[in-house]
Simulated scan of single mutants.
Amino acid sequence: MATALHQMRLDAVAHRLLASGARQVADLGCGQGELLHCLREYDQFDRLLGIDTDAEVLALARARLMLDPLHPDRRVRLRQGSFEESDWCSMAIDAAVLLETIEHIDPGRLSRLERSLFGQIAPALVLITTPNRDYNPLHGLTAGERRHPGHRFEWSRTQFRAWCRGLAERQGYCVDHQDIGPPDPQRGSSTQMACFTRCGTG
């Protein structure tokens, strides 16, 4: 079961996707399929594609979504692959989501993600959520301590916004930001979300 904070993330992403009018959505780093399970409840989404490098978690996602390999679901598909490449994208994508995903990527490889997703596939909307390091003391973490052992980094609000701004300028996107979770006056919220839209598309 999702924690209260994670449910807020799922709800915030679903709200932005629904408001955008997106019909074909890719969940990059889909894990056990929580977001896909949430989005499948909305008729707006014609096609939902989950991508992950981990075969074991994809098996758990298939079980959660009750997908039968012998009888493919017409709306939901899962595929093992790396979203640092673009070869997984065999259908038109209106929107892509990286939900608590980029912090698991080595910083030196983020440029590959940028080229693949924003430069080659270039969906109209990209949503990225990631931990806000400024908030970590309120989770009881000490300086330098990360929320998960698999995190390669955790960015402050200033760092995340600087990265997003540079990416948007290089790739022809506009970006706005949303806090997710109870806010603190000095530290913001636990999760930060960037919403990239191709300039001129809304």
Results as ranks from 00 to 15, higher is better:
residue 89 C to N: 10
residue 130 T to M: 15
residue 177 H to Q: 05
residue 39 L to A: 04
residue 59 A to C: 05
residue 134 D to V: 03
residue 126 V to M: 05
residue 13 V to F: 06
residue 166 G to D: 15
residue 33 G to M: 06
residue 87 D to N: 10
residue 45 F to Q: 01
residue 161 R to D: 00
residue 43 D to I: 02
residue 73 D to R: 08
residue 68 D to V: 09
residue 52 D to I: 12
residue 136 N to T: 01
residue 91 M to I: 15
residue 102 I to R: 12
residue 88 W to I: 15
residue 198 R to W: 06
residue 15 H to L: 13
residue 96 A to M: 13
residue 27 D to M: 10
residue 181 G to F: 08
residue 52 D to L: 11
residue 98 L to T: 06
residue 8 M to G: 02
residue 98 L to Q: 01
residue 81 G to W: 08
residue 110 L to S: 09
residue 85 E to I: 10
residue 114 E to Y: 10
residue 147 R to F: 11
residue 45 F to L: 03
residue 178 Q to Y: 10
residue 185 P to L: 08
residue 56 E to Q: 15
residue 99 L to T: 00
residue 195 C to A: 11
residue 134 D to Q: 03
residue 2 A to C: 09
residue 161 R to A: 07
residue 54 D to T: 11
residue 100 E to N: 07
residue 31 G to V: 08
residue 116 S to P: 06
residue 25 V to A: 06
residue 148 H to Q: 09
residue 88 W to D: 05
residue 65 L to M: 11
residue 31 G to P: 05
residue 132 N to D: 05
residue 111 S to M: 09
residue 14 A to T: 13
residue 28 L to I: 12
residue 44 Q to P: 04
residue 191 T to C: 11
residue 186 Q to T: 13
residue 82 S to Q: 07
residue 95 A to S: 04
residue 68 D to Q: 04
residue 153 F to P: 01
residue 96 A to E: 02
residue 83 F to Q: 06
residue 25 V to I: 15
residue 86 S to M: 04
residue 54 D to C: 13
residue 65 L to W: 08
residue 89 C to P: 00
residue 188 G to A: 02
residue 154 E to Q: 03
residue 12 A to D: 01
residue 82 S to R: 10
residue 147 R to K: 02
residue 77 R to K: 12
residue 25 V to K: 04
residue 187 R to G: 01
residue 157 R to G: 09
residue 36 L to E: 06
residue 191 T to A: 07
residue 12 A to F: 09
residue 85 E to H: 13
residue 26 A to W: 14
residue 189 S to A: 15
